[in-house]
Amino acid sequence: MIKIFRKIRQRLLSENKLSKYLLYALGEIILVVIGILIALQINNWNEERKNANLEQDYLLSISADLENLTFNTQRIYVDRFDEKIENLNFAKQYIEAPFPIADTLNFINTIAKGAASFSGFYLVDDEAYQELVSTGNLRLISNDSLRKDLSEFYTDMKVQGELSKSYNTEYGNYINAIRPFDNENPSYVNDYDTNEFLEELKTKKFRQLIDHELTYAYRTRRMAKNIVENALRMKERVDEEIK
């Protein structure tokens, strides 16, 4: 093809047809420009296709992260705090209206479970989004509204995680002080600790600690439920974008 163009140029020059040569040269330039534009367009198409595929990969990973976040928050903070609140209310009911204890060890262990606590929400399921931010690839999320919502969602999760770390009471420490717990032998409690535990249930301080722990438990469970609801909604939006 190049040889053909060269021969045409040489023939026009040899025939001293300057005007035709200039037209030919202009046409050749136009062809070159068109070729460059086509090459650029093909390159753009390839780049857009690569970015679209990468966006899909990120969205799939974010969807999986949100599913894990929902599952873990529900399991650790909603379900377990349901049990925690139930056990705390059990202790409160006994204090307000004592009833016969059929199984002392089971009774003590039930109340002691109300001391279960967790420092900070389990919010580590954000690897895909953090990679998007750290690599500067957040721009790959082509839906502006979704990109904004993801940013707000994960910012809110960070705030919730920090707030949850500040929620704690002395109830757990108090329980452990009057009833040492051995993971290797959880069913054991000596007579002295048993009697002390039962006596502490009669005190005003113990009742106040239970109420304080209930306040912490209700607040933490409410926050956890909000996280689960928001994560589910966010996952639905991401899944819609994937489709």
Rank of each mutant, 00 (worst) to 15 (best):
N51M: 03
Y154P: 02
A128P: 15
D125N: 13
L140W: 09
S63G: 06
A97K: 12
Y154A: 03
K158F: 09
T169S: 15
L138Y: 07
E127T: 02
Q130K: 07
Y171F: 15
D103M: 03
E48Q: 14
Y174E: 08
F121E: 06
K92V: 06
P100I: 00
S145D: 12
S119K: 12
K50R: 12
A97W: 05
Y167I: 07
E131H: 09
S151R: 02
V133E: 11
T70C: 03
N137M: 01
K165P: 09
I111D: 02
E127Y: 09
Y122M: 01
K148S: 13
Q130A: 02
Q160V: 02
N176K: 14
D125L: 05
F99T: 11
N89L: 05
P100K: 04
D125Y: 15
E127S: 04
N109F: 08
A91L: 08
S61W: 10
F90R: 00
N46T: 13
L37R: 03
E47Y: 06
E131C: 01
L69H: 15
S142N: 14
E131V: 11
E170V: 01
L88M: 02
D82E: 07
M157P: 04
T169A: 10
D65R: 06
T104L: 08
R139G: 11
K92E: 12
E96C: 00
I111S: 04
V159P: 04
N168G: 09
N168S: 07
N53A: 10
S63H: 07
A115E: 02
N72E: 14
Y174N: 05
V78N: 00
S166T: 10
R139T: 14
N106M: 07
P100G: 01
N68P: 02
A64W: 09
A39T: 05
G136A: 00
N72V: 06
F99H: 09
E131Q: 13
S145Q: 12
K92A: 07
D126C: 05
L146M: 01
Y171A: 02
K113Q: 12
S142A: 11
M157V: 02
K165R: 13
Q130R: 09
V133M: 14
I95G: 00
I111F: 10
G161W: 03
F121K: 04
N176M: 12
D156H: 08
E162A: 10
Y58D: 04
E170M: 03
